[in-house]
Amino acid sequence: MVRWTRRFLVGLALTVGSVAMLFPLWWMLVISLESPQRAAAAAEGGGSIAVWPKDIHWSNYPEALRQIGTEPWQGFLDALANSIVITVLVVVGTVLSSSLVGLAFARMTFRGRGPLFLLMLATMMLPAQVTMIPLFLVFRSLGWIDTILPLVVPAFFGSAFFIFMYRQFIAQISESLIEAARIDGYGMLGIWWRIILPMCTPVTAITAIFTFIFVWNDFLGPLIYLHSDDQSTLALALNSFRNQYGGLENVHLLMAVSVVTMIPCVVLFFAAQRTFVEGIGRGAVKG
């Protein structure tokens, strides 16, 4: 009886917590499908709470997306393409560079390995705001302002947190696997590509998902470095849209753009959920 009561209370607490977490997302989805009047009333607080749309207005979506930027549709398509290019390059760059550096720290013996690793870890303590201005000056001197290079190139130099994760994971891999591959004729790069990287799938999933979510939703980076309309990312476009159509009468459109911006992250998370959770668990136990 006590067991059942405990299970019930735990279930209740989890349900309440889940509802509290998910309600804003659900509310965003509902408002995005409401009529302009009901959406505005709900947002103002004077109308219904809008837990379910009265009439589903799918037309809110094309209408909202068409109005992004100066040219109909063009602004949205440009922002989408830019976001995809930047995110994919940063994800690929982070996975490749972090795993390679992680392998070096885990398996290669070189002078100063320990101090270098500590120095690398120490960079995690630096807030982004500290490096923002020096980095801007460096990128400006390189002539990279208003290009995607400042957002993409640093990813190919590794990320301290993910290097740490890869290093911890690779350190668990049996040395004999690496030696077997050496005897099979592979050098360190071949071993990294053919043995280590495929075995690091859980860490790669975490790295890819975290990086994807961060870069896809990143507002500050693109705001600093991208100035032209045709260079804008979805996060920047969403902000411009909010400035342009931020009134309560257009809240349904704002929510529609917000939902579209959020969809890739949600889809990616559910697609990679199993590997992701496995990786988190592994890191927790062995890391």
């Binding site: 049996s174 004999s176 696997l177 030696e179 077997a180 591959a181 050496r182 005897i183 099979d184 004729g185 592979y186 053919r194 043995i195 495929p198 075995m199 799938t201």
Partner: peptide, 30 residues
């Protein structure tokens, strides 16, 4: 001479089979 150029093959205590490859692929990898 590097290990790969000594024309030797080694069997390890923990077998050192590549876990992400099939048996066939393990055999043909080298």
């Amino acid at each position: 001479v590097a290990a790969r150029d000594r024309d030797i093959a080694m069997v390890f205590q923990d077998y050192a089979l590549y876990p992400h490859m099939t048996v066939g692929r393990n055999l043909s990898f080298g």
